[in-house]
Design a protein around this nucleic acid. Structure first.
Length: 852
RNA sequence: GCGGGCGUGAUGGAAUGGUAGACAUAUCGGACUUAAAAUCCGUGGGCCGUAUGGCCGUGUGGGUUCGAGUCCCACCGCCCGCACCA
């Protein structure tokens, strides 16, 4: 043994762990359990360095928990349904299943050399019939409990390809393949009743102490609870049956600034008017153009059509407001009708300018009597409250109280009432696609929609489908949809829609507790392993995936698949950042960017050059993208440096919640450091075993301090800081003149502390020093508190808040003693020039501040 | 557009409201070498100074505090999400 050779030692230790079944998750009566889970990957084809970062973080936790005496569950699987498989099949002529399973095989083969402590015996893919069959069983249970229902909803429709498009397939309002302008079209679809749980999902966020505050805030905003006034505006010149229009508002300050009303193209009134007037009908069609996503709707040019109908605001009986049909009002939100206050809302202001509507400024007193003219005046809270108090009386202190005041008035007059609303909409799960979990229901001409019998599950996807043309292959399959009605036994048709892939990922964490059970979960296993103690994944899942999973856990509890305690399935959540990489680009003759691979770029003094000497532009920290040629392939990194270097680097350079930029220099540095640690270990192993030395005590103090710091770092996701402490301790150890016994203890402890991050190297050091068994199974070192405290502390002295000097005082010195020593300090004496300080602040153990 | 976040040396970053820049990389200087690489030692925010040291400094502008990278307000820039991408 003479050099660090990861290519040899890594497979060796991986085999050793496997032989010893180190990571097989087994319930234990006398150990606490710990379930650590990283968001499972989509089988895109190859693992990405971002996966390496994600699973390394989870692995650090898993290995640490194992070392601290837990029974650990750390599983891996694949989120395997979805559009990319269909797209790949369309492009290559293959089959989505073949593509998916081949990718899974490749990715597993790429993951194993990274040495993750995973229980591979629990692996599954969501496209396995064993998995999605249980998902169908869940669907049937939800249906029975009223947690799923059918209603109409709007989808993106490509009129040329005659197919439904996902939002990502809509580019600038046009279909990605056909280029045709996308239309909004209504289909009957299945929905989960997540909105029934709005209040609960919101309230329960309070109990999620180990979730990032920002994720909880984003979810709270997404659920969007509001208390407002729902009130009726009496109509004039409206078709029969439309005596009034219902509006909802949370903004009492805009009541009197209202100058127009707008309704959705799908509002019943708009539909009624369209029947009578072809111009209105044409306009409504126009409004239905464009994508369904909120961002597109918000950014789209606002257009309106004056219907000739007017309404009267109950707060302003003498003013008739024109009613427009407008493309920015959606039937799904609120009542499908709004009133506009142009003076105090920029969007309404622009609409009013465009259509020549009145602008009534109710805050004119706040703007020195100058009314709104070029843009809306949006008042801040204090201004609103002052205004409302003047309007409604001195008891009004908040906007909320003003709403209550208005509610009272409207209820007395019979024109409105208080309503609590949520922004959260029900979760539409129907997808008109092949590669997903079939929805297990049957459409019977006599019985209507009938749930499939559980004994017929799984309803498997047919293998023989034609993927090559747009549309749902299940829909046009010659025989698959033909079946018998589970109720009457007559000829019937299967539902051909499949489920949103978010359904697949909303309960996989529960399935991991009993991946082979013939029910969705095994109650005993679920009771033992749930909840997920630590969940780790990207911030991009902050809202949808995590909210859906929280809903699913509740629904599964209602159906008896999860215990009450698992209603919040993730005890702690950590959202990690991306791995980025610089883009190296030059420009072609027309100024278009040309992207260069990192291996073609020579970096010198922060500049990059091609082989011919051309300087390239470096765009740092860009998201990795195949088209930008800046993707780092973990497989190449492992073959060059080994898994431990990759693991060490992705943890070391940035805080885990932030993005980390992959650099060749950084990877090289990590590799060199691991090599130095190995050589250090080797040197200590060759020392004279009886060698005495100096500085044993100092080395042991440094060791215990490092144990303390690294333990804290691992516990609190401060991996980068923990690694910095390990660097410092390595430096200390390599300079140490301590005895062999002390140095051996230090290097073995170093190996233990590094083991969660660089497990292979740690095992090698452990074995090299004659350690017993595997370091993966050794107990985590414990810091000796007595070794952490020094006898004296150095306190900085500030004069007027600026550091000027420092003093050394005994660690248990009283405040008075510290004051005395501080006042005797040369710098303080000089600054005081014989006078007395105005104030003397002593923070024991921390700092002294002398105020002159 | 709406919601959320981030901003510290040349670079990645460290810092329970208490010594800003730990640790690492680049650079520069030195040792070793015929030389280079590797390795080791040192330097490593800016300005002034031979130096002891001094002044400035955490995106910008204000505020709170004995003390602000950290807390509050406004602004600028970048990133993420927006319900059929996973």
């Amino acid at each position: 043994m003479s050099r660090y050779d990861p290519a040899t030692l890594e497979p060796k230790w991986q085999a050793a762990w496997e032989d010893a079944n180190v990571f097989l998750a087994e319930p234990s009566a006398d150990k606490p359990k710990y379930y650590v889970l990283e968001m499972f990957p989509y089988p895109s084809g190859r693992i990405h360095i971002g996966h390496v970062r994600n699973y390394t973080m989870g692995d650090v936790i898993a290995r640490y928990k194992l070392a601290t005496g837990h029974s650990v569950l750390h599983p891996m699987g694949f989120d395997a349904f979805g559009m990319p498989a269909e797209n790949a099949a369309m492009a290559s002529g293959g089959h989505p299943a073949d593509w998916t399973y081949a990718n899974i095989d490749t990715m597993v083969a790429q993951m194993k050399p990274l040495g993750f402590g995973l229980d591979w015996s629990r692996m599954f893919a969501t496209c396995d019939p064993e998995y999605y069959g249980q998902q169908q069983a869940l669907f049937l249970d939800f249906l029975e409990k009223g947690l799923v229902y059918r209603k109409n909803a709007v989808v993106n429709w490509d009129p040329v390809d005659m197919t439904v498009l996902a939002n990502e397939q809509v580019i600038d309002g046009k279909g990605w393949r056909s280029g045709a302008e996308v239309e909004r079209r209504e289909l009957t679809q299945w929905f989960f009743k997540i909105s029934d749980y709005s209040e609960e999902l919101l309230d329960a966020l309070d109990g999620l102490d180990d979730w990032p505050a920002k994720v909880k805030l984003m979810q709270a905003n997404w659920i969007g609870k509001s208390r407002g006034l729902q009130f009726r505006f009496a109509t004039q010149d409206a078709p029969e049956g439309f005596d009034s229009l219902e509006m909802y508002t949370t903004r009492p300050d805009t009541f009197l600034g209202a100058t127009f009303a707008a309704i959705a193209a799908d509002h019943p009134l708009a539909r009624a008017l369209a029947e009578q007037n072809s111009e209105i009908a044409a306009f409504c069609e126009e409004c239905r153009k464009g994508a369904t996503n909120e961002e597109a709707l918000e950014k789209a040019e606002k257009i309106g059509f004056d219907t000739g109908v007017t309404v009267v605001n109950p707060f302003q009986p003498d003013r008739a407001l024109p009613v427009f049909i407008a493309n920015f009002v959606l039937m799904d939100y609120g009542t499908g009708a709004i009133y506009g206050c142009p003076a105090h809302d920029q969007r309404d202001f622009e609409f009013a300018k465009k259509y020549g509507l009145d602008i009534v400024d109710v805050f004119v007193a706040e703007t020195d009597g100058v009314p709104v003219s070029t843009e809306a005046y949006v008042p801040d809270k204090d201004v609103i409250v002052r205004y409302l108090r003047a309007l409604a009386g001195p008891e009004v202190m908040t906007s909320y109280e003003a709403i209550d005041h208005a509610i009272g008035r409207c209820e007395a007059d019979g024109v409105g009432e208080g309503v609590t609303r949520f922004r959260l909409r029900d979760w539409g799960l129907s997808r008109q696609r092949y590669w997903g979990c079939p929805i297990p229901v049957v459409h019977c001409p006599t019985c209507g929609v009938v749930p499939e019998k559980k004994e017929n599950l799984p309803i498997e996807l047919p293998r023989d489908v034609d993927i090559s043309i747009p549309g749902n292959p299940l829909d046009r399959h010659p025989t698959w949809r033909n079946c018998t009605c589970p109720k009457c036994g007559g000829a019937a048709q299967r539902e051909t829609d499949t489920m949103d892939t978010f359904v697949d990922s909303s309960w996989y964490f529960a399935r991991f507790t009993a991946p082979h059970a013939d029910t969705p979960t095994d109650p005993e296993a679920a009771a033992y392993w749930m909840n997920v103690d630590q969940y780790i994944g990207g911030i991009e899942h902050a809202i949808l995936h995590l909210l859906y999973s929280r809903f699913f856990a509740r629904a599964m509890h209602i159906c008896g698949h999860l215990p009450e305690t698992a209603k919040e399935p993730f005890n702690a959540l950590f959202t990690q950042g991306m791995v980025t990489h610089a883009i190296f680009q030059t420009r072609d003759g027309e100024g278009r960017p040309v992207y260069h691979y990192p291996e073609d770029v020579d970096l010198r003094d922060g500049k990059g050059f091609l082989a011919d000497g051309t300087e390239v532009e470096i765009i740092p920290s860009a998201k990795m993208s195949k088209s930008k040629n800046n993707v780092v392939d973990p497989v190449a990194i492992i073959s060059q440096y080994g898994a431990d270097t990759a693991r060490w680097f992705v943890l070391s350079d940035s805080p885990p919640e932030r993005d980390v930029e992959w650099t060749a220099a950084g990877a090289e540095a990590a590799y060199k450091h691991l090599g130095r640690v190995w050589i250090l270990c080797d040197r200590i192993a060759q020392m004279d075993k009886d060698a005495a030395g100096t500085g044993d005590e100092d080395l042991m103090r440094a060791m215990h301090k490092t144990i303390f710091d690294v333990t804290n770092g691992v516990e609190s996701f401060g991996f980068n800081a923990a690694i910095a402490k390990l660097y410092a301790f390595t430096n200390t150890l390599s300079k140490s003149q301590a005895s062999y016994a002390a140095q051996r203890q230090a290097v073995m402890t170093l190996a233990q502390l590094m083991a969660p991050m660089t497990p292979h190297l740690a095992e090698d050091i452990w074995a090299h020093q004659g350690g017993e068994g595997l370091v993966a199974q050794a107990a985590w070192p414990v810091a000796d508190e007595a070794m952490l405290v020094e006898d004296t502390v150095t306190l900085p002295i500030q004069i007027n808040g600026k550091r000027k000097s420092e003093i050394v005082v005994p660690k248990d010195a009283s405040k008075e003693e510290v004051e005395k020593i501080a006042l005797a300090d040369d710098a303080v004496v000089k600054a005081l020039a014989g006078g007395q300080p105005k104030k003397l602040i002593v923070v024991p153990g921390r700092i002294v501040n002398v105020v002159l």
